[in-house]
Each structure stands twice: as C-alpha cells, then as structure tokens.
C-alpha cells in the first residue's frame, strides 16, 4: 500500500510538471518579449510608438518607429476578415447543426476540417495566383496585393474555427428546449431563431473572438498578400503591413540589439497582449455561458 502511494505521488508529480510546462512556456515568452522590447520602450516610449504614424526603421539618418500604420493594418484586416468569416461560419454552423441530414453533416464537417488543415502558405499561394489578378482587374489597381485580398483569404481560413466552435455551442443547447418550443406549436425556423441561437449566443461570441485571435496572429498570408507598405491604410484596396508581417519580414534584416530589433519585440508584445485579452475574454464569456445553462438542471 505504501509503495502504491509513493508511485501515485510520483505519477501525479510527473503529470503536474508536464501540465505546468505550457504555463512556464507562456511565462518565458512574455519574459523574453518584455526584456527585448525594454530597450525601445525606454528609448522612445510606448505611447509615442503606438500613436505616431511614421514607420521608417531602417532610415539611416532619421529612423522612425511609429507603429500606428502596422496596428491599424492588423485591425483593419482582422475586421474585414471577420465580416467574411462570421456570416459564413455561423450560418454554416446553423445549417450543419439544425438542418443537415446525417450524411450531409458528415460530408460538410470533414470538408471544413480539411480547410483548417491546409497550410497557410498554400492559402498564400492560392491568393497570389488566383485572387491577386482578379482583385487587380476588378478594381483597376496598380497591384492586387492589398488589404482586401489578404482579408478574403484570412476570412476563408477563419471559417473552420468559427463553424466548428459555433456548432459545438449549438449542439450544447439541450434538446429539451427544442422540444419545449415545438410542443408550443412553434415552427422550426422560429425555434432556431428565438430559442436555440439566443441560448447558444455566448458560445457563438466565443467562437467569433477565437476566430479573431486566429486572424490577427496569422502571418504567412498577410506577408504574402497584404502588399507590405507601412502606411495607414485609407481604403480596402490599399496595400498594408500588418504587425505579424512586419515582424516576420524585418526580423531577418535587423542587427541584434538595435533599436529596430527591440521595436519588433515591442510589436510582438502588443500582439501578445491583444491575443491574451481576446482569449481571456472568450474564456470569461464561455464560463458565464455554462453557468447560465448549468443552473437548475
């Protein structure tokens, strides 16, 4: 018995050590970001970096580290992609969960899973070869690499996350609510719109927020399709340089320890904070949701 207890203890220790590993990794990432960005934050000031709009980090005489164009580009792209992925994602989730017959359900779900398994660089290729020329012709632009192009591709990429999380949320609505509504003589569409979707609303919001987190952190597609100009975008068809694409493209060309190097870490820190806020928000909403449906049943 005694041996068993020590064994148990060892196993428990092992598992807890492993599970704390990811926490440690998160902490270390934050630490590295904070340490490396310290130089630029101290030199220039965080507020000044965030609010000024000149990003000329490699200018030899007068380098400028205004991150506003990069941040606006990221937000712009994220917002536009969500405009595409939210309706497609949520509506297909409703279709899969409420209307599709078992066979269609299986087909659609596996199809959507395949989308999420396609590497982002492949999406980037597809964008370059297929979408860029179309956008260029359609809007009569000097170049098809712009916010619109990368938003469309990102929007398609975010659909699987939003669809599968929304579908989970819809499936979590107890069938007793469905039955209650039907038993009162409600039609199917009324039941879906007035009972099921409201009951799943927090889960749907969570899905959208996590989708936003996926989009804002995506690098390869924006690097390949956004056009790369670090100017505050004024229209859909302007080229832009979102945060992720700035970090990825500039990190290789900068001197370790320089102000430019440090300011890229500041960008990373900003991105990190945004995504952490988004996932905390998602968790908060979903915990509130489970409480709401958990009570009294």
């Amino acid at each position: 018995m005694k041996i068993k207890t020590t064994e148990n203890y060892k196993i428990e220790l092992l598992f807890s050590a492993v599970s704390f590993f990811s926490l440690l990794a998160l902490f270390l990432i934050f630490l590295t970001l904070a340490k490396e960005s310290f130089h630029s934050i101290k030199e220039i000031g965080l507020i000044k970096m965030i609010t000024s709009s000149e990003w000329y980090p490699t200018d030899e005489e007068n380098p400028a580290f205004g991150m506003l164009p990069l941040i606006t580009a990221s937000l712009y792209v994220t917002f536009l992609s969500l405009l595409i992925s939210i309706p497609i994602g949520t509506l297909s989730a409703v279709y899969i969960s409420e209307f599709a017959k078992p066979k269609a359900k299986l087909f659609l779900k596996s199809f959507i899973e395949i989308i999420s398994a396609v590497p982002s660089v492949v999406f980037g290729f597809w964008g370059i070869v297929f979408l860029v020329p179309i956008i260029q012709k359609l809007f009569d632009l000097p170049t098809g690499y712009c916010i619109l192009t990368s938003s469309i591709v990102l929007g398609i990429m975010a659909v699987p996350i939003i669809t599968s999380l929304c579908e989970d949320a819809l499936n979590m609505v107890p069938s007793s609510l469905r039955e209650a509504s039907y038993a009162l003589g409600a039609e199917k569409h009324t039941t879906i719109i007035r009972i099921i979707i409201p009951a799943a609303s927090s889960g749907i919001f969570t899905a959208i927020i996590l989708g936003a987190g996926r989009i804002i952190g995506e690098t390869m597609v924006v690097l390949m399709l956004s056009g790369g100009s670090a100017v505050i975008p004024e229209s859909l068809t302007d080229p832009a340089r979102p945060i992720t694409s700035a970090i990825a493209s500039e990190m290789g060309e900068t001197v370790v320890g320089s102000l430019h190097y440090s300011s890229l870490f500041t960008l990373g820190l900003i991105l990190f904070v945004i995504t952490v806020i988004l996932s905390v928000l998602a968790q908060y909403i979903s915990s509130k949701y489970s409480l709401k449906l958990g009570k009294g049943r």
């Binding site: 007793s176 209650a180 509504s181 038993a183 409201p198 009951a199 709401k292 009294g296």
Partner: peptide
C-alpha cells in the same frame, strides 16, 4: 416534460 425545461 419530465424535466422542467424553461427557456433561458
């Protein structure tokens, strides 16, 4: 029904 099933 068997279990009370009010709407949320």
């Amino acid at each position: 029904f068997q279990k009370p099933n009010p709407f949320p």
